[in-house]
């Protein structure tokens, strides 16, 4: 897990100037803060630059910093198979959160982004098929946000839930491919 901060730093400043903030290495992974509008360009740069080749997207994850502002964050973990480096990209987002999709850069981003949308309501612009992935269509709210109760809302199936509007039920009849 060798990190080459000087190399990253030079290459990235040369291309992006001050737009990308270098947060240094934390526990063996180099971290960059990127504004949402630059995310696709930055990811494509990391993937396609011959000296970096971050061709493997490990993970995309949403974070809710409630009540801190700006509230949301999208975190990307990239891996370079040829160089065996890892890098983390962080992208702070306002409320409602939205940023461009990187599904055009790595196809694997498709489901990761759907998950972040489902759990945090982060809208990825230009995603080919942004549907809920874990919860059913018609579910209200984004369950992993900090203001969503852990036990959900009370109804017959869940007598321990919080007081509130009872959740909708999944519909078995939905069977068409959108």
């Amino acid at each position: 897990m060798s990190v080459e901060p000087s190399l990253y730093h030079a290459l990235i400043t040369e291309r992006f100037g001050e737009a990308i903030e270098d947060l240094g290495a934390a526990h063996g992974i180099h971290v960059f803060a990127v504004p949402p509008e630059k995310i696709v360009e930055f990811c494509r740069f990391l993937k396609e630059h011959p000296a970096l080749e971050f061709n493997f997207l490990s993970d995309i994850c949403g974070v809710d910093h409630y009540p801190e502002m700006p509230r949301f964050e999208a975190v990307y973990h990239l891996y370079s198979l040829p160089n065996k480096w890892r890098v983390r990209i962080k992208c702070r987002l306002g409320d409602p959160p939205q940023l461009p999709s990187v599904a055009g850069v790595w196809r694997t981003a498709n489901w990761h982004e759907r998950e972040a949308w489902d759990m945090y309501g982060i809208r990825f612009e230009g995603h080919p098929d942004l549907r809920r992935i874990y919860m059913w269509e018609g579910f209200e709210g984004f369950p992993q946000r900090k203001d969503f109760p852990l036990r959900g809302y009370k109804d017959k199936l869940n007598p321990f839930g919080a007081e509130g509007p009872p959740p909708t039920q999944p519909d078995l009849a939905t069977r068409d491919i959108p």
């Binding site: 934390a26 526990h27 993970d59 994850c61 974070v63 809710d64 975190v75 973990h77």
Partner: peptide
């Protein structure tokens, strides 16, 4: 925050943990 991955039988199993200094994780992915 930390991301640590191992080679699990199915592939790369990674845990991304954000700690806010308390005994419970702030976020675990």
């Amino acid at each position: 925050e930390v991301y640590s991955a191992i080679e699990a039988p199915k592939g790369e199993l990674g845990f991304y943990i954000i700690s806010d200094g308390s005994p419970k994780p702030f976020r675990m992915k």
